[in-house]
């Protein structure tokens, strides 16, 4: 009741109908209808086709690599992204502006270019690969490198604004009460930025799961070892197996969407708890 009443009151601002209408129309045309075509194709599959797809060892390995690699990459990005954000927000040092701008590079650099560049660096005869005693490119490690690259800005950009807003007086108060830096970080800063960290983590994760362009160059693409799920979709298409391709695409789509719902739910819950 009160919510409805409030909503009625809020609509002092005109234009609700047209803007929401246009938004929904465009969203439907560009995103929902095409994705519905995918789901329809998947819905046409018989249970036995699903069973065969779901028990395919190669597909399971590809999904494990895509999701596992993305999880590892997002975790590394969570740690280093937090560190980078912390350094950029808290410590003034010469060239900080430039470094801050560089963080967005993976957003702007085309994935194919990133893939070729990363391969050139990490291949056994590349600048970095030469120095390492073990292989990175053409192994699951290479997949992770590419995923770290494309996911980093999501974490940094999610944390930065929130970290800027953390009230440092609280930290100072804690320090004057005898808390160590680490304690005040853990008790004051971390809880404040936790939702942002989670958001950044999830976005980096979701992006990494689906990444194709930068990964295929560096992955090696061995079935069951370094073959990612999006590549398997492409492979299935090239084998004229539209059903198999659609099935993997559908699984990935549903997991991505569930993840997004979860993140937006957590954020909303957090906003409401904080009285925002």
């Amino acid at each position: 009741m009160t919510a409805a009443a409030r909503a009625g009151f809020r609509r002092v601002i005109p234009g609700f109908g047209p803007t929401l209408g246009l938004t929904l129309a465009y969203l439907s045309l560009v995103v929902l209808i095409p994705l519905a075509a995918l789901l329809m194709k998947a819905a046409g599959m018989t249970p036995s086709q699903w069973l065969a797809t779901l028990s395919d060892e190669r597909m399971l390995a590809a999904l494990r690599l895509s999701f596992g690699g993305a999880l590892a990459a997002a975790t590394i990005n969570g740690v280093f992204g937090l560190l980078v954000a912390w350094v950029l927000v808290r410590y003034p040092f010469p060239g900080r502006k430039v470094v801050d701008a560089m963080v967005d590079l993976p957003f702007a650099l085309p994935t194919a270019v990133a893939g070729i560049a990363l391969t050139a660096l990490w291949a056994p005869n590349g600048w970095i690969g030469k120095l390492l005693p073990f292989k990175v490119a053409f192994t699951p490690l290479g997949v992770m490198i590419a995923m770290i690259f494309i996911g980093l800005p999501f974490v940094v950009r999610s944390i930065e604004p929130v970290l800027e807003d953390v009230d440092q007086e609280l930290e100072e108060a804690a320090a004057s009460l005898g808390a160590s830096r680490w304690q005040s970080f853990r008790m004051i800063v971390l809880p404040a930025i936790a939702p942002a960290l989670l958001t950044g983590f999830s976005l980096a994760f979701a992006r990494a799961v689906g990444e194709y362009g930068s990964v295929i160059f560096i992955a090696g693409n061995l079935p069951g070892v370094s073959e990612i799920a999006p590549l398997l979709i492409v492979t299935r298409l090239e084998q004229y197996d539209m059903v198999g391709a659609t099935a993997i695409a559908t699984i990935m789509l549903l997991v991505s969407f569930a993840l997004l719902l979860l993140v937006n739910g957590v954020q909303k819950w957090h906003r409401e708890r904080m009285g925002g």
């Binding site: 919510a3 409030r6 909503a7 809020r10 609509r11 601002i13 234009g15 609700f16 929401l20 938004t23 929904l24 969203l27 995103v31 929902l32 095409p34 994705l35 075509a37 995918l38 994935t111 976005l203 979701a206 992006r207 799961v209 689906g210 990444e211 194709y212 362009g213 799920a229 999006p230 590549l231 979709i233 492409v234 298409l237 391709a245 659609t246 695409a249 990935m252 789509l253 991505s256 969407f257 993840l259 997004l260 719902l261 937006n264 739910g265 909303k268």
Partner: peptide
Amino acid sequence: KYDFPGKSLLVSLIDLPFSVSPVISGLV
């Protein structure tokens, strides 16, 4: 600027292309 039911779902749907694999974005 407005409150309406299903807003959270709408925001998730707007975000969706971010996390859809580019390959799927072409396939559809």
